[in-house]
Design a binder for these strands. Structure first.
Lengths: 156, 156
DNA sequence: TCCTGTCTTCAGAAATTTCTGAACGTTCGC
DNA sequence: GCGAACGTTCAGAAATTTCTGAAGACAGGA
């Protein structure tokens, strides 16, 4: 058992950090469970056991985490239960989806730019719009560069 | 007055969008007020009037928004009240600070990597760590590139 | 020093979010 | 079909967050 305690602690700590980053508690704990398990996939029942929460909570959390694009349902022969596993490109997917909120902000700011006459407000809003537009434009390239670097390995 | 309504609506809409992006309601409304005003600076009293909330709420919100690095206190001769205005590099500052939560996540994941033996969990954690490390490394370059592009203006 | 205007703090009210557990569907083997 | 195993939904309980308003702190002028 001496090997299990640090793992649990690290999982719980990571979950807490993700909560600090704005994620919901149950979703964060669920992600941590998927990260730290040695199994290929987990079922809702596994999660309820591991996290010590009700089936209802697990259902909601799994739905959320799946919508984030972090896990996917897989078919396991001979099992009637639903199995989930982390997606291969989980983190890049999450990053890309988070940029849809950037897109929302961008649209709202653009409306603002159009709603005001030239002046101080117009300048501030234009500056904000330009930055968010830049971010939105650069995000896909960033992900692309990461994947290239990863494929390329440690060589130049 | 026909010119003011679209402005107010756009401001309120932007505040709501920022809330959707994870910002606190009052902080978001405060930022919107600073973006949309034609004045150079605003006082706590201005904000209370504009937003229709108590002085206590304004005090808390201003403190938050200042900590985010979006506004700063300025000295205005002949006025005993505290004046605040948006900082020039507000959005790049906000972006950079948000990456301190990325740093927190990175540290927690690194602990996880160290806590587990080689295996599936180790692989997943390593992958996550690499992505977050990449993000953290790239963020300053991204901001730098935006500022360069902005200084360059529309000319080549 | 005292007074006035301004800002901050904080306990509690109000609103919102989060979790549970029981009831209800669904699917599969028999 | 029928029964058993799983999963989902949703109303309400519990916890947390957010806002207010009253009390107090502080600075500057008289």
């Amino acid at each position: 058992m001496t090997g299990e305690t640090p793992r649990r602690e690290a999982a719980e700590q990571l979950a807490l950090t993700l909560v600090g980053a704005g994620m919901q508690r149950m979703a964060a704990r669920t992600i941590a469970a998927f990260l730290f398990t040695e199994q290929e996939s987990l079922t809702a029942g596994d999660l309820a056991d591991e996290l010590g929460v009700s089936a209802g909570s697990v259902s909601g959390a799994v739905k959320m985490v799946a919508q984030m694009g972090l896990i996917e349902r897989i078919y396991v022969a001979g099992s009637r239960r639903e199995h989930f596993r982390m997606r291969d490109n989980a983190w890049t997917t999450l990053y890309s989806r988070q940029h849809s909120v950037v897109d929302d902000v961008l649209n709202a700011v653009q409306k603002g730019v159009e709603a005001v006459e030239p002046g101080l407000a117009h300048e501030r809003l234009t500056y904000m719009r330009d930055f968010y537009a830049f971010l939105l434009n650069e995000a896909p390239m960033l992900v692309e560069r990461f994947e290239q670097q990863r494929r390329g390995g440690s060589r130049p």
